[in-house]
């Protein structure tokens, strides 16, 4: 099967930077996957995201999205395919009201007004924000603004949704709600939507299909979360947090308790402890 996103030997340097931000990155992302990209600050995560929809231009190498080369000629086709939600809720809210913001992407694609009048309420319905259509951004919470940002992306029906640390400025509740929302949308759209989540939130990354680790602009590994997160030693070496369940496992092991070898989610770990408890 053709990968939805393919990087071939891609390097990128910011102007006047001594070190390249990305070094010879080659990578394939399969259609319909939920992929988490992790790495410490300055590891090249955001650069990676911005290269995909031509916000940044690679210094060398080539990128394709759904078989279309990412270059000057195809830039608007690529941007139809790739929707992006950024970190700061305020700095991506273009419209004067919620409805205007959702319509912004449609206006850019010259969708006729009658069509927009149908699409905008639909998109807002999907993120449960239709009651706020006439609100100004100043009267919305950060989490609500991010939902609007998702609605704005959904309105143009992209094949790839990139969340560039989209939850990092939200409070824990807003963060949970947003992740739940994206999971819901993913379930609804199935293989039609590929999610690429650039994140600091290890628990969020742990629920992905695949995890990509970047470190100082280099690809350190692509694997299932259970494999990546069970190697606590490597995570620590790369300056990343270890998921709570793994920390717990390490502590239990140190006390001489036999723990499961494979990766466990927090819920999985709780389940295992219950079983252990009932066996004792």
């Amino acid at each position: 099967m053709q990968p939805i996103i393919e990087f071939k030997d891609v390097s990128f340097s910011y102007p006047n930077a001594e070190q390249p931000a990305l070094k010879n990155l080659s990578l394939q992302i399969q259609k319909g996957d939920w992929v988490a990209v992790i790495g410490h600050n300055g590891s090249g995560k955001s650069t990676f995201a911005k290269l995909i929809n031509y916000l940044l231009i690679p210094t060398s190498g080539s990128i394709t999205v759904d078989g279309i080369p990412v270059d000057q000629e195809h830039v608007y086709d690529i941007r139809d395919l790739v929707g992006m939600v950024f970190q700061n809720p305020d700095n991506q809210f273009v419209g004067a009201t919620v409805a205007d913001d959702v319509a912004f992407g449609l206006e850019n694609r010259q969708v006729p007004r009658e069509k927009m009048l149908e699409i905008v309420p639909d998109a807002l319905e999907r993120v449960q924000m239709n009651a706020y259509a006439a609100r100004e951004p100043a009267r919305l919470s950060g989490g609500q603004k991010q939902r609007v940002a998702i609605a704005s992306v959904l309105a143009v029906e992209p094949k790839v949704l990139i969340l560039d640390e989209a939850t990092s400025m939200l409070d824990p509740k807003g963060r949970r709600e947003m992740i739940a929302l994206v999971h819901e949308l993913k379930q609804e759209l199935g293989a039609e939507l590929t999610v690429l989540s650039i994140t600091h939130d290890i628990d969020e990354a742990a629920s992905a299909d695949e995890v990509v680790i970047l470190n100082d602009g280099e690809l350190m590994g692509v694997d299932k979360p259970e494999v990546i997160f069970s190697d606590a030693e490597r995570l620590r070496r790369l300056g990343l947090a270890v998921p709570f369940a793994e920390q717990l496992k390490a502590k239990l092991k140190a006390r001489g308790i036999k723990v499961p070898e494979t990766y466990q989610t927090t819920e999985g770990m709780a389940e295992w402890i219950w079983q252990l408890h009932s066996k004792m």
Binding site: Y76, V82, V94, R109
Partner: peptide, 10 residues
């Protein structure tokens, strides 16, 4: 950032 967001949205 707003410029990036606007461009990303076509």
């Amino acid at each position: 950032e707003l410029g990036d967001a606007m461009e990303a949205r076509g």
